[in-house]
């Protein structure tokens, strides 16, 4: 009986000592964390997209409470949520211009030539590794929707010609599409950058246009019509200097013969100039017979009769 009692007392004593130690450690090693961080984090969208430049919403909340950034850096939050955070922290909402992803290609299947069909993994990155994917233009969009799949906000939809269309309202400029595109055609821009060159072809005039009907031929009309220095022709491609964006108007797009330079309207989407050739074709161009219809895919051996 005594052994039982001794055991109970010893166990109880150990418990008391350890509890005291834990209680002491809790006080001694306490790390103060601003309770507002949890509150602010709860108000953020929890998308963890990284568009704000922080590693997730928690890190962004810490910066917000520390006063290092303004709430508007979060491009995913709704207007009400931003105001709520600003009111809670008693700071200015801040003015961060909304940014969107823009695609520097408009060469859909109805205007851009394809010299070979592609069979295999339906992914732009896989196609790009096999002889460039079959599109004649080496710079252009492959249209296999890697960006559409990468977008967590459903802001990208492939149109009927296999070109991704970015919804300005839904895009949060998180940059996932920029990483996903093997041709590096996406870039993030403030919405006020309305003047846009939807082409990357560095080929000279006739050659570029023979590959794609809406290519920039580098004719230089937009550069002439624009205020000095806004547009320059570099390597047969119109390049817009966005540091002079306040000078941009719809004038430079008007005389573009191919419609490669456009005005990205918030509601109507890309607007072409009045002299741009009208594309009436709706159907895809055929894969070229003149250049032998080559199908591109790796390891054809498995497809041969065994």
């Amino acid at each position: 009986m005594t052994e039982f009692l001794i055991a109970c007392i010893v166990m109880f004593a150990i418990g008391v000592v350890l509890a005291a130690l834990l209680a002491y450690a809790d006080k001694k090693l306490y790390v103060y964390e601003d309770p507002r961080i949890d509150e602010v984090e709860a108000m953020l969208p929890k998308a963890n997209c990284g568009a704000c430049g922080s590693a997730g919403c928690r890190a962004f909340a810490e910066k917000l409470v520390a006063g290092e950034v303004s709430p508007s850096k979060c491009t995913v939050s709704s207007e009400e949520a931003l105001l709520q955070i600003a009111a809670y922290l008693n700071v200015d909402r801040g003015s961060q211009e909304k940014r969107v992803a823009r695609l520097a290609c408009a060469g859909g299947t109805h205007v851009a030539r394809r010299r070979a069909g592609y069979e295999g993994l339906q992914s732009c990155r896989a196609a790009a590794l096999i002889s460039g994917g079959g599109k004649v233009c080496a710079w252009g969009c492959l249209g296999l929707a890697d960006c559409e799949r990468a977008c967590s906000f459903n802001a990208i939809d492939m149109d009927e010609h296999g070109i991704p269309v970015v919804s300005e309202a839904l895009c949060t400029a998180c940059g996932d599409c920029v990483v996903a595109c093997p041709k590096d055609l996406f870039s993030l821009h403030p919405v006020s950058h309305r003047l846009w060159v939807a082409c990357r072809s560095l080929y000279e005039g006739a050659l570029a246009e023979s590959e794609c009907e809406v290519a920039c031929t580098g004719c230089g009309r937009c550069a002439l019509d624009a205020p000095p220095g806004l547009i320059q022709i570099v390597d047969h491609l119109a390049v817009i200097d966005y540091s002079k964006n306040h000078l941009a108007t719809q004038t430079p797009i008007q005389r573009c013969p191919t419609g490669a330079i456009v005005w990205m309207d918030a509601v109507r989407g890309p607007i072409k100039g009045v002299e741009a050739k009208v594309i009436t074709r709706r159907t895809p161009l055929p894969v070229e017979l003149a250049d032998l219809p080559l199908a591109a895919a790796a390891a054809v051996a498995r497809e041969m009769p065994k």
Binding site: R115, A116, I130, S131, G132, G133, G134, D291, L292, L294, A295, A296, A297, A298, A299, V300, A301, M304
Partner: peptide, 15 residues
């Protein structure tokens, strides 16, 4: 289809 190299490791070409 035109392939450079062998059919197991070679790469199809588009031009």
């Amino acid at each position: 289809r035109v392939v450079l190299g062998g059919p197991m490791m070679g790469a199809a070409v588009s031009s």
